[in-house]
Structures are given as C-alpha cells and as structure tokens.
Amino acid sequence: MAEQKPEFWRWHEYTWRDEGKNWKDYEMITAGVDIGSVSSKAAVMVDGELYSYSLYRTGSSSPDSAHKAMQGCLEGTGMTIDDIKFIVGTGYGRVNVPFAHKTVTEIACHARGANSMNAGVRTILDMGGQDCKAILCDERGKVQQFLMNDKCAAGTGRGMEVVSDLLSVPIGDIGPLSLGVNREPPPVSSTCVVFAKTEAVGLLREGFDVAEVLAAYCAAMAHRVVTLIQRVGVQKEFAITGGISKNSGVVKRIEKELGVEAVEIAPDAQLAGAIGAANFAKDLLAKQMARAGG
C-alpha cells in the first residue's frame, strides 16, 4: 500500500469549555454557529458569558458540519441542544444550520464578535476560507460600512492550504518561515492570488527557496487585502478575524503596509463569527422574553 502523504494543510481542531461554570446556574443559554467554507465554529454563551466553543473543519455537508460543531460545545456538559434557548446561524453555510432559530449575515456577526472580544475594535478585517471582508463598526459592534471583493478570492484560507500542500510546509509553519527570509521574490501577480500552483512552481524553478516563495505569497495576499481595507479606511482598534489571522507572515505584512498594529482578540480570532452570532442570539432571546413577559 502506498504511504499516505502527510496532510500539511491540516490545522488544529479543538473544543474548549469553562470548567468553572455550571450552565444550570444560568438563565439565558444561547449559541452561535458559524459555518464557513473551510472551518465550522460554534460557541455557547450563558447570560452573555462564554461557556464553550469548538472549531472543526467543514465537511462536505454543511448541516453535518453544523451538528458536529454544536456537539463539540455540548460534549461532556450534560447540556442538550434543547437546553439552548436561542441559536443563531451565520457564515457561508448559514442557511444550512438546520437547528438555528434565525440566521444573521457573517458581516454583522464578525463585527459584533470582534467588538465583544475587544471593546475598542472599530475596524475588522475578516480573512476567511474563501473570501475577505473589511468592516467598520460603531462602539456597540454595529456595522457602519463593509466592503468585500466578490471577484477574486484574495487573501483566503483555501489558497493558503493549497500552498501549504504544494510546498509540503505544515500550515502553522508558513508564517514564521516566510518572515525569516533575507530577500523576497518580486511580488506575484497582483490581480489574482490563485496563482498558487503555476507561479509558486515558477519561482522555485527560478531558484528561490521555499521560504522565499512563501514570503512572496504572504506579501501578495497582504497587499491585496490592504487595498481593500484602505477603501473603507482604518479606525482604531484594528482586528483581524478568520483563519488567516493565525498566519503571522500575512498579519505582520498587513500591519507593516497599513502602519497599524492589529489588536489581539481572545480567546481565538477564528471564533469571532460564532461568538458574534451567540451575542445576537442573546439579544434576540431577551427580546423574545420581554415580549412573552409583557
């Protein structure tokens, strides 16, 4: 049998739960489920505080991915999906969250999530699996302006996975490797970053090493999204959400080109959409309860 090729693109899937909390002590149990093209995330909140969350790879079926992400948040807690009073679905696959009470756009959820994770955040750059958006929000996390590039999948996680696989570099190593170079190849084709295969191979053939090709790729990605974000303008604080926020090679280059540092948003910038959705769910539940009570 042929030896299986290592999966360089594979990133870390995980779940987390606040062991210090007993969900039964809380009244408002809400959840957000964010189904992206590459990753699926869910977050459960109790009275507006984070209780558990999960991050998985999106499978071929969005509804299955939604169930898996949700299950990841519930496992070992004794909580069932029926204990959650309001669930908001978001993301690319948001219409495919079968158990959601409502769907909200990922633009609104990312802004709300990032702003709730760091109250100073006004500008959000969401770099997801297959698109990239620049969002401005107000002090409450409400969207003021957004812009995405609907044409080219610039600065996307999927592209990064392809590069990782092509060059046999584990995805988590791309950032550090790309920052360690002494020279960068000339910036790659600026109009389309889907150059991965041909252009990367071309650069290798020209004598650039793997780290340098990664540097060129990260630089091209960073430059593309900087032009996007400059159209809306940057207001502090600036945060990057989505999977690419974990790639220092792209993040550092964006910060350098913009002249603004991105703030840290804990616990995980990739969860911003799910956490924003759980926040929306909390507001919607409060509204529902007020209506029922009055």
Partner: peptide, 16 residues
C-alpha cells in the same frame, strides 16, 4: 450602513 458590492480587478474598481 454603507454596503459596498463589487470588486476591483486589473482594469479598475467597480463598487455599487
């Protein structure tokens, strides 16, 4: 909210 729909490509910037 200002919602910008469109794209920029090699030929220019096209947003509604």
């Amino acid at each position: 909210m200002l919602a910008n729909y469109g794209y920029s490509d090699g030929s220019g910037t096209y947003y509604i």
